[in-house]
Amino acid sequence: MGKTFNPKITAFLCKWCSYTGADLAGTSRLQYPTAIIPIKVMCSSRVDPVFLIRAFLKGADGVLIGGCHPGDCHYESGNYHTRRRFAILQSIFDSLNLEKDRLRLSWISASEGPKFARVCNEFTDKIQKMGPNPTRKNMFI
């Protein structure tokens, strides 16, 4: 009883922008929640839908993808592809009654340390309010 809920948020961050942004947040000594578990990927488009689905169904309370701003992707168009994929993934989550708000895509550049910290704080607050990911429980009917 009364056990506090410590959310776990898997964050896939692209090496060139968001991960560097996270680094900047760190070196600028900005606080962001320990709920965030960063995973470095070479580009936001490297995040195969399977990564996301697996993280989510295996119990992550939230999944964040961080990529470069449109037009700034190191590989030119990776993030545009991520964007389309993410749109479809969210709509499928929605149609299966999985909470699509537990998925988040944000554009964070290498110089946006404060933004990184803000996104992480906001997202963690939101997940904290939503409570633990209920999907695993609902899987056995």
Partner: peptide, 25 residues
């Protein structure tokens, strides 16, 4: 290893949703 080898429901859903997304479009 992305999913376990046995037909456990979590893994099965990862398989199906993953495949759905891989053939999307």
């Amino acid at each position: 290893q992305w999913i376990g080898k046995s037909p456990e429901i979590t893994d099965t859903l990862i398989f199906h949703l993953g495949r759905n997304l891989h053939v999307a479009g």
